[in-house]
């Protein structure tokens, strides 16, 4: 709760949070803001420039791009947040166990992370989705298998440091159970850098998800996922640049929002003194 109180004090964090809230609000309010259906075709209204009725213009099927970008936010944010925070929870647990127990447990878990770490991120995700086939579920599988590594490593390092501090020594003297010590005394401190890292991870993941759709390996059309909107617009870039521009800006917007939020978090969570 300290975080939420301190966050608005850092200007970067406040702006990031505001940008994110605006996005969420717009997404929720889209049905009231726009009369259009993100999926319905109307060839008569194809490729219209941005106007009062179509704020972001229309695409080659006559679909309203504002509505589609907003509907796309639901896809991209859902995918990105799940693809970051589920593996994060797993990675944090693994890292804490490795750092807290040390010895062979640590060695085994860390060699496992080494193996996954040895492959470039995109190559691994592409390979997994390539083998399993392109779908939203398989996208989750691929990111779950790859994304936890970073968190495991960060948290392991933090846990090792914290375990040597006096207050943890004190819990040993008091004969607290290991689970209780890990959950109540190690976790809150060890998780901080992981949380900051997760914000930049969201940015990277949004881009990766859009990139996967771009290659045809992610969510399938007609889902208005931003990467799909961009790949569909390429052939029309010369006559209808707004088809590419607005989904592209949406990715940039979300990227900036989470970057600023991450910066705000790291300021807010920095120990004073």
């Amino acid at each position: 709760m300290l975080v939420l109180k301190n966050l608005p004090r850092s200007p970067a964090g406040a702006i990031g949070l505001a940008m994110l809230l605006v996005t969420l609000l717009a997404t929720v309010l889209t049905p009231w803001l726009s009369p259009w259906d993100p999926y319905a075709l109307d060839f008569g209204a194809a490729m219209q420039a941005p106007s009062a009725s179509h704020w972001f213009g229309t695409d080659n099927f006559g679909r309203d791009i504002f509505t589609r970008v907003m509907a796309g936010a639901v896809f991209d944010l859902r995918l990105a947040l799940i693809c970051v925070f589920v593996p994060m929870a797993f990675g944090v647990a693994v890292g804490m166990v490795a750092g807290f127990f040390g010895g062979w447990v640590d060695a085994a878990l860390m060699r496992l992370t080494d193996i996954v770490w040895a492959f470039p991120f995109y190559v691994l995700v592409l390979a997994i989705v390539g083998v399993l086939g392109a779908s939203e579920t398989n996208l989750y599988v691929a990111f779950f298998l790859v994304n936890w590594i970073g968190y495991a490593r960060i948290v392991r390092g933090e846990t090792m440091l914290i375990s040597r501090l006096e207050y943890i020594e004190a819990t040993r003297v008091l004969r607290f159970g290991r689970i209780r010590v890990m959950a109540r005394h190690v976790l809150p401190n060890a998780v901080t850098p992981a949380l900051v890292y997760s914000m930049s991870d969201v940015v990277l993941t949004v881009q990766a998800i859009a990139a996967m759709s771009f290659f045809g390996l992610g969510v399938q059309p007609p889902a208005p996922e931003w990467g799909i909107l961009i790949v569909e617009s390429i052939d029309y870039m010369r006559e209808a640049p707004w088809m590419t521009l607005f989904p592209g800006l949406a990715i940039v917007w979300i990227g900036i929002a989470f970057s600023l939020l991450g910066e705000g978090l790291s300021t807010a969570l920095k120990p004073k003194g």
Binding site: Y39, A40, L41, N60, F61, A134, G216, Q220, P221, P222, E232
Partner: peptide, 23 residues
Amino acid sequence: RNTAIALQAMLSQVGVRVKIQML
């Protein structure tokens, strides 16, 4: 790609739900 998306919308009007698989 474009034909597939249009077909999907047209078939949905008679209740046929088409899932597009790009390959």
